[in-house]
Design a protein around this nucleic acid. Structure first.
Lengths: 159, 159
DNA sequence: ACAATATGTTAGATTCATCTAACAAATAAA
DNA sequence: TTTATTTGTTAGATGAATCTAACATATTGT
């Protein structure tokens, strides 16, 4: 009964969830096709697939809604996306546009195990009493700019 | 003239390069289908596509070889794969099997920019005079096990 | 050298995600 | 309230990646 979804189908779920959470709160075929840059009939076909599998409800000429199963799945994907985006921007320092683009593809590629570890890694980089970056992350940013990692010796150098 | 390759085609190139570098140094259709878990006719179709695009040479009933273009592409993908594998295992501490599996998918998902940053991050984690993990990485491993990041206070605690 | 086995190829079918063209229904404008 | 416009649907085609079945060529063993 697992009937795994393709990454394309996952994208549709993610998009529907995103559209629900903004604008007028309802989701039409047009909105989905606009966001995913596909034509209406393509969206229709996808919705057919997703409704047969129990992820969405879509009556002829009506709005699109997620089932509980669909919401859960969409939420999972969005969490992964947000986590990856954060990792790419906050830790690696990738620009927002590239990070967003890559996160959209990586979210379908990483296993739960990797997802959990990356999440922990982000938490680790944020943990602590002060909200500032930890020193190691500052050192990495410095390394990105200069190609040099502050060594023990360097830290002793004055000025 | 860019004619981007699908991730499936990239996998074929990667596999061919890998097979070349081991065993008897030649690559047959059978080797590729065995490694990728597809049937011979599928490999044949892929080789057709790749040879039309100038990545491989394949004469009827002959061995498969990469063109220079194909080698370059394959090398790019392998570099990405190895880098991702290293990141997943050495930094995140993901098990080798999962890391290998995920790297195979992620290598097709990340942009050059992200690839470069990740590479730098790995370099950063290895840089230095001693080959040991840097302290921050040890701290992360500790965080994974205990859920606690060694704080300034904790470090002062005796024993 | 010949038969048996393994490997490679061709042809044709299937599934998925996409498209265009033609039509139907709903909404907005007059 | 008719007409015009936008949106949704259906039908049918396409390209990519896969399969099976049938056949062709190589390789191996005797």
């Amino acid at each position: 009964m697992k009937s795994k979804l393709s990454s394309v189908m996952e994208d549709y779920l993610e998009t529907i969830a995103m559209l629900k959470k903004r604008g007028d709160g309802v989701v039409r075929v047009r909105d989905i096709s606009a966001l995913l840059n596909v034509k209406n009939p393509t969206v229709n076909a996808a919705l057919k697939t997703l409704s047969v599998k129990g992820y969405v409800v879509h009556e002829r000429y009506g709005y699109v809604t997620l089932t509980v199963k669909g919401e859960e799945k969409a939420y999972d994907i969005q969490r992964k996306h947000d986590m990856l985006f954060k990792f790419l921007t906050d830790i690696l320092g990738v620009d927002r546009h590239t990070a967003s683009f890559d996160a959209c593809k990586m979210e379908h590629a990483i296993s739960p195990k990797t997802s959990i570890r990356l999440t922990k890694f982000i938490e680790f980089s944020e943990e602590g009493l002060n909200k500032e970056n930890p020193q190691w992350l500052k050192n990495f940013k410095h390394y990105l700019e200069t190609g040099k990692k502050p060594s023990c010796n360097m830290r002793k150098v004055k000025k």
